[in-house]
Design a protein around this nucleic acid. Structure first.
Lengths: 152, 152
DNA sequence: CGCACTATTCACAAATTCGTGAAATCCGCG
DNA sequence: CGCGGATTTCACGAATTTGTGAATAGTGCG
């Protein structure tokens, strides 16, 4: 029953990779499962069945993924079955959303450098790291935009 | 005693941010503490004192950070005190090292798409995500290189 | 050589995370 | 309205993670 839909192995491996990168396990599995979903998306019950977990686990995972703007809940009127589906621009907007975090981390590094007297090498390294992070924060959204253009 | 060195607050906030992004807590704290270190780096004992944790916790954290090539152990001959210090290109090489992971994840997505018949929209979205990831994998190292050039 | 001190390892304890089952809630439909 | 099915919430238990303390090992110096 769980292998009635193809792509299981790759989905699980991808989920494992995302989990290793810091994403909670269940959301990662749900997300990868949705990559191989039919066009209408999956029902919560289908996800639970497919992943072999309880409905509660799916509920928690989809809440997390919705808060991250990675999936959306498609409630077709006249049918109270909620279907879930990936946001088309999910990862791209994730990349963009992370940029301010890089900038913020850069600020912290600068603050540390400001407060670190008598350690010239350390300070200049901290400033260097901070500048790199700000560069990333600036370039990541541009990168996404370049991708949008190239893809056209 | 733990506030004898400046930069504590910003360091802790930065560490919390890194932890939220999936990095284990203790390595994150050690890493941020080293950002504000004196030029010689910190001793394991100094780190333990500064962070208010046991020597064992520091030992585990530095092992993790070394395996990630984020810090290095400076054993000055004639002194058995091991000092730890950030690798100058730590974050840049981390960014570069992640590129193959993006590519791998892209492969998984393509595999899922290959195996997903009768869901044209899902498939084309999966291919799109895969292509985006490969684009990232290709561009991230270039981004770092651009930064190196611009910096000098 | 062994002393003093530092760093690492190991087993355990605390804390957090994760997923389940059962109860509660919601909603379209008869 | 209330029924039936789907989803969410909640408290608990399991499992993984995280950090500590004590023992171990390594090393420069007397």
């Amino acid at each position: 029953m769980s292998d009635e839909h193809a792509g299981i192995d790759a989905a699980e491996q991808g989920a494992a990779m995302l989990a290793a990168a810091g994403m909670p396990r269940m959301p990662a599995r749900v997300m990868m499962a949705l990559v191989g979903s039919p066009d209408e998306g999956y029902t919560a019950a289908e996800l639970a069945d497919r992943l072999g977990v309880s409905a509660a686990a799916v509920s928690g995972a989809v809440r997390y993924l919705q808060s991250m703007r990675i999936i959306q809940r498609l409630s077709k009127p006249g049918d109270r079955l909620a279907r879930y589906d990936l946001m088309d621009d999910g990862w791209r907007s994730m990349v963009i959303a992370n940029a301010p975090l890089y900038a913020k981390l850069g600020e912290y590094l600068d603050t540390i450098a400001d407060e670190n007297t008598d350690a010239p090498a350390s300070v200049s390294r901290a400033r260097d790291m901070a500048a790199f992070l700000r560069y990333l924060a600036e370039r990541m959204p541009e990168l996404v935009e370049e991708w949008e253009n190239r893809r056209r």
